[in-house]
Structures are given as structure tokens and as C-alpha cells.
Design a binder for these strands. Structure first.
Lengths: 219, 219
DNA sequence: ATGGTTAATGGACGAGCGTCCATTTAGGGG
DNA sequence: CCCCTAAATGGACGCTCGTCCATTAACCAT
């Protein structure tokens, strides 16, 4: 992270990159990208050191140099993948009107958008999920994604429930949060197994229909 | 005389196993069970021939003898796992009254029951899902599970929509089917990542709440 | 220029993988 | 009772895995 300045200098100064000098931060990223690509293309069980370094066009020793080993690289890749999800989510959420119901739908729409939900991301996501139960380090990043999304949704649903005056139904916001999350989760799986038939608009409409049942005045 | 005794042993008791004789069918099943156990315990990437045969307490050559190789064994294990899901689902569905709405809820309840959704099955299921995108043979069995469930649900929801007289809403049964499926799918994932906090009753209640919104007269 | 520091290389290495087969063992039929 | 078929064994095999290190190359400070 302190090398950020260094990178800026590098990108500023054209004197270097031409001949492919040494750029540790760039190569680190190259390895992570190559790892994610390899998982998406060959599956996690066929993701080997040889395939990764071949795709990154780097030498064999780089993984040990930058990450200390393959396992750590996999964890770093899972973290990077997770962060990319949130960066794009937040990008799509900026500049929205402050209407709670539309905020929820914007989250759903973003989660199902081609930028976040596509063949590559769905394959990677499920690959990580599949090994997460045997790898606590990777599980941590899958959980983080879940947690942040859950927090945000819950907050918005609390506002909506308040607005509709459902003081009596203490479970409403909680049910809406959980229902929305599991629906999005299930849709990612459905996307993976029925990529050709998947329809983002339809998927969004069905989530909205679920929420209409809970909040007739808002959705 | 010795011939007679032999015959009796044969027809009477399949329990020839006293001295651990040879029982190809039993050993085949033993290998499949050991494979599923190993996946649940060590994860799919750490599921090796050595671990499987050790757990099955059989010799190294058995995998090649019965399945022709590790890959085929994995596919056979996926198939067996899938069939076990349906056997148990059908077991829980027998002898139910012919009330459509309760049939749906029975399916949901079964899918979320401890017999079908537990630590072992959730880990195995996600492991297979994770490698399915890189292994068409395994993907086939994941799909089959989905397809049969979808068919059944759709049929029942059509009856319910008919009964409530929603002729105008042609998408109703389809939405209900899809929504229910993705919710169950998402709940399996949620179970895996939050095993301690998962509540089967709550999960079922939320699906019902979704369906109440679509069919106010039936759920 | 020179020396010191760190990035980067790529091959050597042992461990463990999955496959396969020569051999042994068990059981039923002639 | 013996023989033949099929089940079962377990070690040998070649191969690929991930790790690591001696070496080289690039950069920076002096």
C-alpha cells in the first residue's frame, strides 16, 4: 500500500514501462488476475501454479516471491474478487435519489447486472464457495460480501417499514432482508446453470414482486 | 451335503460378509460413500485417491476396477448424492393430503429438513456446484435435481393459480416456481455460511410469506 | 561508475498424484 | 476336488504438483 506513490511515479514517467522493467505491484495484480481467469476457465481443481504463471506470462518463482505460496495467492484472489464486487456495486449506487424502495431495487439490479453477474464472475464465485467450507481464509471473504450487503439492505428496509407504519410487524424488515438476499444468492446459482435462459429483467421483477407482497405501498 | 448348506447360506443370508468375502456391489457403494465423506471433510481439492481408499478401507486398485478411474468415481458419487436427495424427498412427500398449497410447503419443508439440508450435504452440494462449471458430467446431475423440482412445483402452482382464478396473470405460476426455487437455493448457501444461526422454521416461514403475497387466498 | 538492494528468473527437487498390472484370493461349476 | 472366472490386492510407474534457491537483471543512492 505504501508503494502506491511509487506506482504513480511509474505511470507518470514514461521512461520505464516500455521495456517491461520491474513493477512488483503490477505483477502482483497480474498474478491475481491470472488466477481468477484460470479458475473461471479451467475450474478450481485444475488451477495449478503452472497454468497461472503461464497465463500471467511470468516466471515460476513469482508466486512464492509475492505471496509466499499458492494458497496465499488463492486467498488474495478471493479478496480481490470480493473487493471488485463492492467497487462496482458502489459505482452503480452513486448519485441515486434518496428513495428507499428504489435503493433496494438498485442494489438488486446491480447484483444482477452484467458487470457483476456474468459467466466469469459466476464461475469464480461458485468455485470459491465450493472450497470455502474447507478453507476458512477464503470463507472469510465470501462472508464479508454477505455481511455488508445484509447490513445495507436491513437499514433501508427498516426505513421502509417505518414509512409504511408496520410497527406491529417486528419481523418485516428482517424477513425482507433475508428473502431478498437468498433470492439474489439463488439467482446467481440459477444463472450459472441456465446461462442461456437467464433473464435479468425477469429476475429483478420477481424480487420486486416478492417485496410488493411485504410492502404493498412501496414496491 | 456341503452343497446344500452352501445354497442355504446363499438364499437365506446375504450376510456372507463374515470373513469379508468378495462383494463387488457393496464395495462399489463403499467407494461412493467414502468419496462423498472425503469431499465433506477435506473439500473437493483435497479429495485424492489415497484418501478415498483409506476411508473405504479398500485397496488402491478398486477405483480403477469398479469405475475405471477417479473422474468416473466422482461422477458416480454426484449421481448417487442426487438420487439420495430425491429418495428422501419422495419419502417425506408420501401420504400427504391432496391440498396444493400444503404440497408446496411440504416440498419446501423437506428441502430444508435436517435429513436433506445438513452440514455434510451442504458441503458436498456446494463442492459439486463449484466444479460443475468445469465438468459437464457432474453438471448434468446438478441440473437434473433442479429440473425435477421445477417440474413438480410448476405443476402444483398451476393448480393453485387456477383455483384462485388468476387467469389474467399468466406469469403467476411461473414466478412462484422460480421464486420458490431461488429462495431454497439461496437458503442452502446461507446454511453453509451461517450454520449456527440458520433456523429451518424461520426459513420456511419466509418462503410462505413470499407465497402469501402471490396467492393471498391459499397461503 | 560502483555497490547495494530488491525484483525477477527458471530449473532442481522431493512429495504426492492417478493409473495400471502382475499377482493373489475367493467362489461356483464341471 | 480342481479349475476357471472374476474380485481384490498393493506396489511400480511416469508424471505433475508446489516449493525453493542460486543466479541474473534492474534500479537507486552514492
Amino acid at each position: 500500500m505504501p508503494k502506491l506513490m511509487k506506482d504513480m511515479e511509474k505511470s507518470d514517467a514514461p521512461s520505464r514501462g516500455r521495456s517491461g522493467g520491474r513493477q512488483p505491484e503490477k505483477n502482483r495484480q497480474l498474478l491475481i488476475d491470472a488466477t481468477l481467469d484460470t479458475i473461471a476457465i479451467h475450474g478450481i481443481t485444475e488451477t495449478t501454479v503452472s497454468r497461472i504463471i503461464e497465463r500471467a506470462a511470468l516466471s515460476r518463482g513469482m508466486i512464492h516471491l509475492h505471496f509466499g505460496g499458492k494458497d496465499n495467492l488463492l486467498v488474495a484472489a478471493a479478496q480481490a474478487f470480493n473487493e471488485a464486487y463492492y467497487d462496482e456495486m458502489e459505482r452503480q449506487m452513486t448519485g441515486l435519489p434518496d428513495a428507499p424502495a428504489e435503493t433496494v431495487m438498485a442494489i438488486v439490479r446491480a447484483d444482477l447486472s452484467a458487470e457483476l453477474l456474468n459467466e466469469r464472475s459466476a464461475k469464480i464465485w461458485h468455485a470459491f464457495r465450493g472450497v470455502a467450507s474447507a478453507n476458512p481464509e477464503i470463507a472469510r471473504f465470501s462472508d464479508t460480501r454477505d455481511f455488508r450487503l445484509r447490513q445495507t439492505l436491513r437499514q433501508v428496509f427498516d426505513r421502509i417499514a417505518d414509512g409504511e407504519g408496520h410497527a406491529a410487524d417486528s419481523r418485516l424488515a428482517r424477513d425482507a432482508t433475508y428473502g431478498t438476499l437468498v433470492m439474489m444468492e439463488g439467482m446467481w446459482t440459477d444463472f450459472l446453470t441456465h446461462m442461456d435462459a437467464f433473464d435479468r429483467t425477469e429476475a429483478e421483477r420477481i424480487v420486486r414482486r416478492f417485496l410488493t407482497g411485504l410492502f404493498p405501498d412501496s414496491f
